[in-house]
Simulated scan of single mutants.
Amino acid sequence: MIGRRKDDHVRLALEQQRTNSGRNQFDEVSFVHHALAGIDRADVSLATTFAGISWQVPLYINAMTGGSTKTGIINRDLAIAARETGVPLASGSMSAYFKDPDCAGTFSVLRTENPDGFVLANVNANATTEQAHRAVDLLRADALQIHVNTVQETVMPEGDRSFSAWLGQIEKIAAASDVPVIVKEVGFGLSRETVLTLRDLGVRVADLGGRGGTDFARIENDRRGPADYAYLHGWGLSTAACLLDAQDAGIPVLASGGVRSPLDAARALALGASGVGVSGGFLRALLDGGVEALTALISAWLDQLTALLTMLGARTPAELTRCDLTVHGDLRTFCIDRGIALGPLAQRSRTVHAPRNLTGST
Rank of each mutant, 00 (worst) to 15 (best):
R4N: 12
G52Y: 07
Y231W: 05
H133V: 06
L358H: 13
G159R: 08
E15Q: 15
T19G: 08
L271D: 03
L325T: 09
F107I: 06
E185L: 01
A127V: 01
S349D: 06
V203K: 01
C242L: 06
T326R: 14
L167A: 13
L358S: 14
T194W: 05
G272I: 00
V32G: 09
A265T: 11
A314H: 04
L144S: 03
Q347T: 14
S256E: 08
L312D: 03
I340M: 00
G3L: 05
M94W: 05
Q145C: 10
H233M: 04
N124A: 11
R41W: 04
A227I: 02
A132W: 03
D330T: 11
S91H: 04
L167K: 14
D222L: 14
F107L: 05
A206L: 05
T333C: 05
P58M: 13
M156D: 07
T69H: 11
S279R: 09
G258W: 07
A241F: 04
T106H: 10
G277A: 09
I146T: 07
L46Q: 13
D40F: 13
V155K: 03
R83M: 11
T154V: 04
S108I: 00
F118R: 02
G38Q: 14
E84Y: 02
P101V: 12
A273V: 09
V179L: 09
E193F: 05
A13V: 15
N126H: 12
I39F: 01
E171Q: 15
T48I: 01
F98I: 00
T359W: 11
N126C: 09
L198E: 00
H233A: 10
A270T: 09
M94N: 03
T316E: 00
N24S: 09
V151Y: 11
V352S: 12
G290W: 13
A141Y: 06
R315H: 14
D222A: 15
L59Q: 07
V10T: 11
E220I: 02
R350T: 13
T197L: 15
T128P: 03
E193D: 12
L269D: 01
V186K: 02
K99F: 12
I251G: 03
A174L: 06
Q304R: 15
A81Q: 04
T150W: 07
D337N: 13
P115T: 07
F107W: 09
R223T: 05
D43M: 13
C103A: 08
D77C: 08
D324R: 10
E158T: 09
E193L: 10
G67S: 12
